[in-house]
């Protein structure tokens, strides 16, 4: 559905994208993972016909984004980093406006707006001006606006950056629903966890280059930095707890005299194993947490510097 072939983009002497090739099959989700300045937004702008590549070709639904931009725009929806809605208008009017521009009659536009407001849990807020919306509501309205025309392909550029966990979760569920309907999604994110949750495959971008791609599982395999951390209440419990964990085939580590035990695990089901071992040892604990690898862990595992802003700073 999306086919990118050797795309490069230069701004003056700065290379924002360097020979990018990727494909996204119909109905699947590609997670484009990278820090600010990695080139994510630049790629999304090219695919959504907002800017032209310096070299290379890209096609959406078989249509070249440069020569057949007009037709491409009929098939896509774009949700950018900033909630792109008219803040001076009520939420409902924003959606009606988009529908009218797409050729809907007044009645069709109103019906579609109400349908989307209901779906996005915004019916009650529909008549309020968008500038009075919370961050999460605004993002939802923004996403709703890009779905008015029932697009085949959706570009989500950091859709949850700056959202609280509940709002993020709500947006994820909406994206999942879209995918179930057969929509193809290209999602950019700085959160490995988000790409893991939503994406069928992940491409990691750094300084305009692809440094890794594969499924979330493959990527995590390479990173392998999931762990459970257990905080003890009393130092005298430590030896006993470590021993119990070792019996459970785990390899806890701790700083000398520290109360914090770090236990690398394969996946989150191992949390239960840790809990059982701790329980068996009869240890009184102050805290227990499971941590997923982060984007920084990915960069580190791929032996890539984490700060790339000096090399490619214009993606956003």
């Amino acid at each position: 559905m999306i086919d990118v072939s050797h795309i490069s983009k230069r701004f003056g002497s700065m290379t924002a994208l360097d020979d990018i090739s990727l494909t996204v099959p119909r109905g699947s989700v590609l997670g484009l993972l990278g820090h600010n300045g990695a080139g994510k937004t630049t790629l999304v702008s090219i695919l959504s016909t907002l800017s032209r590549p310096t070299s290379g070709r890209a096609r959406v639904a078989g249509l070249d984004v440069v020569t057949r931009g007009e037709q491409v725009r009929r098939l896509i929806g774009l949700t950018g980093q900033y909630a792109a809605v008219d803040e001076t208008l009520p939420g409902r009017h924003n959606l009606i406006l988009i529908a009218r521009l797409l050729g809907a009659t007044r009645a069709e536009a109103a019906a579609r707006a109400d349908e989307l407001l209901a779906l996005f849990d915004l019916t009650d807020a529909g008549h309020r001006n968008a500038k009075n919306y919370s961050g999460g509501m605004r993002r939802r309205l923004d996403l709703a606006a890009s779905l008015v025309g029932r697009p085949e392909v959706i570009f989500l550029d950091e859709p949850t950056t700056g959202l609280d966990p509940a709002a993020r979760r709500q947006l994820w569920e909406i994206v999942e629903r879209l995918v179930k309907d057969g929509t193809t999604v290209l999602l950019t994110t700085q959160y490995l966890e988000e790409a893991d949750y939503l994406a069928d495959s992940i491409t990691v971008l750094a300084a305009g280059r692809i440094i890794a791609s594969g499924t979330a599982a493959e990527l995590k395999e390479r990173v392998g930095r999931r762990s459970v951390s257990v905080t003890l209440r009393r130092a005298e419990d430590r030896a006993r707890t470590v021993e119990a964990l070792r019996r459970a085939a785990l390899a806890p580590s701790h700083e000398e005299d520290g109360l914090l035990l770090t236990i690398p695990v394969a996946d989150s089901t191992d949390v239960a194993v840790v809990v059982r071992a701790v329980d068996e040892a009869g240890t009184d604990i102050a805290g227990l947490a499971f941590s997923e690898p982060t984007l920084d862990d990915v960069y580190m595992a791929l032996n890539h510097p984490t700060t790339t802003d000096s090399e490619a700073g214009t993606s956003s």
Partner: peptide, 22 residues
């Protein structure tokens, strides 16, 4: 992150309403 990285149950709403049939 906490343990809450497990997927919740998929939402029950009618998906066809979101973007039309596939």
């Amino acid at each position: 992150m906490s343990i809450a990285t497990e997927r919740p149950n998929p939402p029950e709403a009618d998906p066809a309403a979101a973007a039309g049939p596939p």
